[in-house]
Design a protein around this nucleic acid. Structure first.
Lengths: 209, 209, 209, 209
DNA sequence: CATGAATGAGTGTTCATTCAT
DNA sequence: GATGAATGAACACTCATTCAT
């Protein structure tokens, strides 16, 4: 251990003790919290450190740079989302109809977005462009999940053939992602919005048939 | 506004000569451009100045502060959008059906959003929380236009009564606002997306009836 | 006139037309006013220009630099003071006793200091050290007047021989110069203070003999 | 005090370690020195930093702002002066005559003013109006000490009843405060000036009785 | 592991000054 | 004579980062 030269503790995230991992997570939580509530600009190393009762310099024992913190938040956020949606979809019976699959997906997405429990996804919206772009690949992997959902819907005849998925998916998710902004913390429960979204999506807003 | 001492033209935007107005606009354009393409953090006074072949200090001849620049972009953006939508709606015959009104509205919104011709609306998405909040009132005035549109649709029976406008409007606009992000400059024409959006909205994505 | 090259109008103060001279004086007045009421730091070229309904750049037609303005204020101030005191002393009958001469001198000094009518002396106190020092020579010429006054008093036996003039003069003037600060605009008339000062000086504050 | 985010030692002056306190003091000394010798305008953060072999930004580890530095100098200066004079007066026997009390007071004041050993009082004279005003309250507490001295002298009959203390005190201190300016570093010892001042004050400059 | 102390690059802003018009 | 427009140097201040202890 002591013989390796290049290996500062920040590099050894994998081999980290459980206490370290805890500290890393505390820092990530603190940073994510600040970003969501006060914006990225307010998320200085000093501010993050203060939330975990440290001084700024000490953070560098746990992370190599501020970017590493933000990137990890981003990565964790999307991966969590990805994992949840994967799991949700997998847990549905194979013969579940499209409407039910869609409802489950929307609910999963929205609840992850609105509940602030360890799901860093909401952070994304508050990040500067330069940083956002770094997560492009991961985001596309998540989008692929939605693509597959709609593609299946299309194949089963539940989705009208006239829709171009390349447009539909971002359009749908664009609408969903904005919900927390407009709906705040006090707003309608995400379940209500999910219901609205699904109904609207499936039948449109025209008079019910 | 605050403790102004002596008078530069920065104080007299209204009485500006046409050449001044041009310079002001050039600066606003430059700033908006930087914000949209590189993010708010990249939009330093020095960067803006460089785009208009100036030094940072010179900007203060035209604007009193950076905030004044950003706020004016924000204000102009929303007001332009508001004006365009107002005009669009006013230009429709009184008896135009809801579907046509909606299509016109969506097209107006999307074309303003995607074409970068003096419509600063796209900037909003890239602004820090603190600044965004300053435009709340203006944004709500714009939202009211959409509220009225849907309310009329609801009264005429074109919109199903089951929808809560407080949820529907932000949901729809949230979807629309994200279009430029996913669709970039190379993407489908905004007219196509408008068509998709309207069709989806009105009839849903279910199999065509 | 038009053939001389190096001669901008600022150089030709002596040959100035009466309107120029008026403008120069207006500027000097404005600058002095600002310095006395708001401090030297508030006396920017823009602020001065605004008071005479100009733009900053235009001042450079009348003065070569800000320093020239300030130096001229300083010079005019002390020279006015010098002239007034000279005149006052000269107007006294040759046989006037020391007490009367002293009273006249103190009154002249204080009234110049307190009344803001074109006597720029009060400005001195608000100037940065670097600038103050530039007026050293002129100030010493003024001090010489006081030295002579006390020297005469000493020779005539009216001033006790025990006093060192090098200490006495600055001490006395130091006290007098502070009067406007403590006494403001609302305070006792300068005549009252002059009386107090003279009485105190001549007889001390001990019980009257 | 205002919107402090995270914690540096600049916030905890009271709890400072001895080394911190030393650094703070070094900075205060440097700033005071520059102000006295080159004027307030020359006292930039860069200049102060250079004197303590730092870069400008580092000062902010020790102080929250430039104002904090200046205010602390001002406060320390007056409080030191106050404390010294208090102590001096308290150390005199109760039955000490007015002349002796006055002499002690003048000597204390002048020696504090002239010796640059940690007594920042001399700084005051070089501060811009806006800043000076911030110390008004503290200065008045100091003036009160002198008021009491003269009031006692008046009661004991040592001071002629004809004097208005509201004029006398500022007049006397005005004279004393100017001493360092005229007398520089090379000048007569402050003890000599103190003697002169007291003698002049008590008996006047008239021929000795 | 954590901190005290420092740094360098960069931020928004101010201001005396210049000069073509 | 005066101004609109610009500049360059400076300023106070912030922040991610480093490193000896």
């Amino acid at each position: 251990m002591k013989t390796q030269k290049a290996g500062g503790p920040a590099e050894a995230a994998a081999a980290a003790t459980s206490k370290q991992r805890t500290m890393r997570e505390e820092i990530l939580d603190a940073a994510a919290d600040i970003i969501v509530s006060d914006g990225y600009d307010a998320c200085t190393m000093r501010a993050v450190a203060a939330r975990v009762n440290m001084k700024a310099g000490s953070l560098y024992y746990h992370f190599r740079s501020k970017d590493e913190i933000v990137d990890e938040i981003l990565k964790t956020g999307i991966e969590t989302l990805h994992a949840r949606l994967s799991e949700t979809m997998a847990s549905l019976p194979r013969e579940a109809p499209f409407a039910r699959r869609l409802t489950a997906a929307v609910e999963t997405h929205l609840s992850s977005l609105c509940h602030r429990d360890r799901s860093y996804i909401h952070v994304y919206e508050h990040l500067p462009l330069v940083i956002r772009r770094r997560s492009r690949e991961m985001r596309e992997r998540y989008l692929a999940l939605w693509h597959r959902l709609f593609a299946e819907g299309f194949e089963s005849g539940a989705v009208a053939s006239r829709h171009d998925l390349r447009l539909l998916v971002p359009y749908v998710l664009g609408g969903l992602n904005r919900v927390p902004d407009w709906n705040g913390e006090e707003g309608a429960a995400s379940a209500d919005i999910a219901a609205l979204a699904v109904a609207t999506l499936l039948e449109g807003i025209g008079p019910s048939r």
